[in-house]
Amino acid sequence: MAHWMKNLKVQPNSTSLEEARKRTFEFFRLACRSIPSIMEIYNLQDVVSPSQLRSTVASQIRKNSHVTNPKVIDMLLFKGMEELKNFVDHAKQRHHIIGQYVVGRKGLVQDLGPKDEGISNFLKNFYNSKYS
């Protein structure tokens, strides 16, 4: 995976929204396929599972799903690729990935959906409040 990421070039602009969309999926697949090596590099086995990281990447992409300008999508993809490359090349440290993508914005309690019912609401609200 990493070997062809080394000679990555800036692609020409996407001509249409459809092409930008295709590139987004390509980027997502690339990110998903490099998750195992990232977990290996940063020793994340006991902190997070590959599927959680996949969901995090997907939610990062979904956060920008309202963007319809192909040039903006290209720019976002470029930034995403830069970030991914930094992780794969070990240009970041373990706490970067844990802070940004494992613990994430929601704090210590992840509300990933209907399956997260085990956590008490009190704690959830506490972590979501402006306590820090």
């Binding site: 999926f25 390509e26 997502f28 697949r29 998903c32 396929r33 195992p36 590959p50 599927s51 996949r54 969901s55 997907a58 992409i61 979904r62 799903s65």
Partner: peptide, 26 residues
Amino acid sequence: DSLDTVEIVMALEEEFKLEIPDKEAD
């Protein structure tokens, strides 16, 4: 949505240790 579908396909790749080419995965 389509992104979730891709995510599931990636999960399947991981489960069965495959690499599904993009055209097939779509």
